[in-house]
Design a protein around this nucleic acid. Sequence first.
DNA 1: ATGACAATCAGAGATTGA
Length: 259
Amino acid sequence: MKIATFNINGIKARLNALCDWLDEAQPDVALLQEIKSVDEAFPRDAIEDRGYTVHTHGQKSFNGVAILSKLPLENISRGLPGDESDEQARWIEATVMGEQAIHVCGLYLPNGNPTPGPKYDYKLAWMERLYTRAQNLIRDEIPAMMLGDYNIIQKREDAATPDAWMTDALFRPESRAAFQKIMALGFTDALRAVDPHTRHFSFWDYQEGAWQRDDGILIDHILMTPACADLLLDCQIDKHIRDREKPSDHVPVWVKLNA
DNA sequence: ATGACAATCAGAGATTGA
C-alpha cells in the first residue's frame, strides 16, 4: 500500500499538476493540504475518473484538507478534536481498508507566524490538541499514521539556511519542543527510519530563486505508530515535480507499507 | 527592505503563507 501526503497550495491552481503526479506516482491513498476550496467547489470529477473516492474538509480561501483513496475507507472524521470553536479546516482522518487496516490522519498544522502573537498561540494550542489525539493513537495499539504539513523544522539539518529561521514559528524552540513531545510518545518518522543520513527538503519558497539555489526546508512529515512502523517498506520524496510548470511550493512525501 | 512570489477573493489590492 502506498500512502502519500502533498500540500498542493490550492486545488484550482494545481489540478493539472496533481493529476499528472497521481498518474505517475499511483498512490493508493493521498492526503492533501491547503486545498483552499469549499467542499462544493472541489474539482472531484478529474480525480474520481482516476479511480479515487474523494473526501474533503474544505474552507473558503484558506487551509482545507482532503483524502483521495482507491481503497475503501471507514470511520471518516473531520476536524481535530479538543476545540469545538475552531473553524479552521486542518484535520481529516479515516481507516483505509486494505489487506490490513491502516488509520490515516491528514493534517495541516498552523504556520504560527508572526511570533510572538495570537497566531503563534494558536499553533501551540493546536499542537496540544494534536498531542492528545496522538496519545490515543498510541494507546489504541493500531497501525496508524499522522501525515501532512507540520510546519515544523525539526533540526538545523532540515533547513539549507537554519540561521535564517531562528525566530520563525517553524523553528522556534517551543514549536520544536511540542513536536518532540509528540515523537516521544513512540512515533517513528518514516523518512528518517528509511534514510537517516541524507538531507531532504519538502518545501522551497517561490521567492528569490529558492528552488534553483536548493534553499529548502523539510516540514512535511509522516509519523507512524509502532504497529504501523513494523509495516514500513519505503519512504521517499517526489522532489522532481517542484521543477514543473506551475508547481506547488511543497512536494509529495510517500510511504510504502507491507499492508 | 513598505520587498521578492504565489493563490484567493474579487474584480484592486489586502491577506495569507513559510
